[in-house]
């Protein structure tokens, strides 16, 4: 018990011995963790969006207003025969408008009250059994565009594909930026602890002389590094929690999305992830610093 209180006390004392350096490294770690959290949230959000889009309609044929119902039904029947297709839904102009009104009702700043004509197209929504077949079917249906029935064709997998590309680019960019931040944070922690070690070099010399184990010499510094990490995590999580509400509202308002669910345990996972990462970086940086000193 006495040992633990000694180590914890020494770590706490060490942190406040050089407050400017300790706070600087805490803020650097916070910044890195904010980026870390930002990438996790964005990545999870995009993945959720991809999942939602994939489960939705995969191919949409927008129909000419002048198309005859018999032609539309014939086309529908023909598409339904394709083995890669699960279902084809005919959405009339009225149904499309009703959907729009439904969305509008949920938004304060979106008023449809004075729309008296219906600008929306009727459509055929095609659900595929296998997403890989979508491009083949899309290619064959492209020929129908401009023949009096189909006005336009929207290929949803292309959207999904684009979204996946964004996710990929973000992940690679994110990892690169995060890598740089990690390097900076480690650098700052290593130096903070090096200063702490230097400040206590007499104490360390005596500890080694009287026969303290390396463990005893090392742990106060590692704990000090972890303290820097933990404080950094607390600061960044406080910023995230304070900013999460407004940012989510702004995102939904701006992108007009489908509020995607990030999963029920996401917040807990995020907090654990950020804290775990912070403690690891703090302890790692301190270990590097102390190890170099003790090896002498």
């Amino acid at each position: 018990m006495r040992r633990i209180s000694y180590i914890v006390g020494a770590a706490w004392e060490g942190f406040w011995r050089n407050p400017v350096m300790s706070i600087a490294s805490t803020l650097t770690v916070s910044l890195m963790l904010l980026l870390f959290a930002f990438f996790i949230v964005t990545d999870r959000g995009l993945q959720a969006a991809v999942t939602v889009l994939e489960s939705k309609v995969e191919l949409v044929l927008y129909l000419e207003d002048t198309a005859k119902p018999s032609d539309i039904l014939a086309l529908k029947a023909r598409i339904e025969k394709d083995p890669a297709v699960t279902r084809v839904d005919y959405v009339t102009k009225e149904q499309a408008l009703a959907r729009l009104r439904e969305i509008a009702a949920r938004k304060k700043d979106f008023d449809l009250a004075d729309v008296d004509t219906n600008p929306l197209d009727a459509s055929l929504e095609i659900k595929m059994a296998s997403a890989q077949e979508t491009s083949r079917l899309a290619a064959s249906l492209k020929d129908e565009v401009g023949r009096g029935v189909v006005a336009d064709l929207v290929d949803n997998p292309t959207v999904v594909e684009k979204l996946l590309t964004i996710t990929r680019v973000l992940s690679i960019g994110g990892i690169a930026v995060l890598g740089m931040m990690l390097f900076v944070a480690l650098f700052v922690i290593v130096n903070t602890i090096r200063i702490a070690v230097h400040g206590r070099r007499d104490e360390i010399e005596i500890m080694k002389l009287v026969g303290a184990t390396d463990w005893f010499v090392r742990w106060p510094f590692i704990l000090e590094g972890m303290l820097v990490g933990a404080l950094g995590a607390t600061v960044s999580l406080a910023i995230i929690i304070a900013g999460a509400g407004p940012v989510t509202t702004a995102m939904i308002g701006f992108l007009d999305i489908l509020p995607v669910s990030l999963g029920p345990n996401f917040i807990a996972q995020l907090v654990l992830g950020v804290f775990g990462f912070a403690l690891l970086v703090g302890a790692g940086g301190a270990s590097i610093s102390v190890r170099t000193h003790l090896a002498k």
Binding site: M1, R2, R3, Y6, E203, I206, M207, V210, G211, A212, T213, F216, V217
Partner: peptide
């Protein structure tokens, strides 16, 4: 101090 850092109890 010499006792504390060599793991002796209170």
């Amino acid at each position: 101090f010499a006792l504390l850092v060599t793991g002796h109890e209170g």
